Computed example of a mutant assay.
Amino acid sequence: MADDEVQGMQAGQSGLIVKVPQAEPLVRAWRDRLDPSARVGVPAHVTVLFPFLDASRIDEDVCAAISEVVGRQPSFEARFDRCGRFPGVLYLAPEPDTGFRRLTEALVERWPENPPFGGQFDDVVPHLTLAQGQNEAVVEKAEADLLTALPIVAQVSSVDLLVHDGTRWRQRASFPLGSTRLR
């Protein structure tokens, strides 16, 4: 979740993410230092849909619908072996990114009133943010360090719902993907 999103967070905001726990040992120290979302409870992840519904609208029926949509998508493997950049952002790029794109598309099809990142981007590029709003020398150092330890391989088997409580992001639910694996 982007820096400007983190600073403007309000209680009740929510998002759907894929946690990448396999990345934590490598990226945690850099993210804690260079990614404001890490300091407010967001784990290493790839965003699937943000912003999502206000927490006050998320009830059993919404959770059942998320479960149904996510459960129709097969689990898959993603390999993170290179860094990428957006303006002011350093990230790890998953390959293939097809599974993440399919998750986003399926959820947006069900909740079209919630386009990814509020509709800011024509093409939503799946990514694991490492640094935001940092000086270029710091970003280059982080990238050089991270590249020596890649690749990271992750088995994607669930989507997590995070809700902002006004101070931190907290996991509210987890939804398993289907069992068929895509590669």
Rank of each mutant, 00 (worst) to 15 (best):
S67I: 06
E68T: 14
G84I: 12
V156I: 00
G8P: 06
M1V: 09
A154S: 15
P96V: 00
A65G: 01
P43Q: 07
L147N: 06
L162Y: 00
L34C: 09
G12R: 08
V42C: 11
P43Y: 10
L26T: 06
F117V: 10
E77V: 15
G119S: 09
P74N: 08
P115E: 07
C63Q: 14
V6E: 11
G12W: 03
P94N: 09
G118L: 09
E105A: 15
A131M: 07
Y91Q: 11
R110H: 08
V138K: 04
V159E: 03
V124C: 12
F52C: 04
V18R: 11
E68S: 15
F121N: 13
L92K: 10
G84T: 09
A29R: 15
S174T: 14
P36F: 00
L103T: 01
G41Y: 06
D81P: 05
D61W: 10
S56P: 03
A11C: 09
V20N: 08
R101I: 08
P116E: 07
A149W: 08
V159P: 05
S37G: 04
T98G: 04
S157H: 13
R102T: 01
E105K: 12
F80V: 10
A106F: 05
E109C: 03
H164Y: 09
L34M: 14
E136V: 11
S37L: 02
F100N: 04
A11V: 05
R57I: 01
V139C: 04
R170Y: 00
V46Y: 08
G71T: 11
F121L: 15
I66D: 00
P115N: 08
V125I: 15
R79G: 00
G8A: 15
L53A: 11
A106Y: 03
A149F: 04
R101A: 06
L34D: 07
N114C: 14
H45F: 07
I152E: 05
L16S: 00
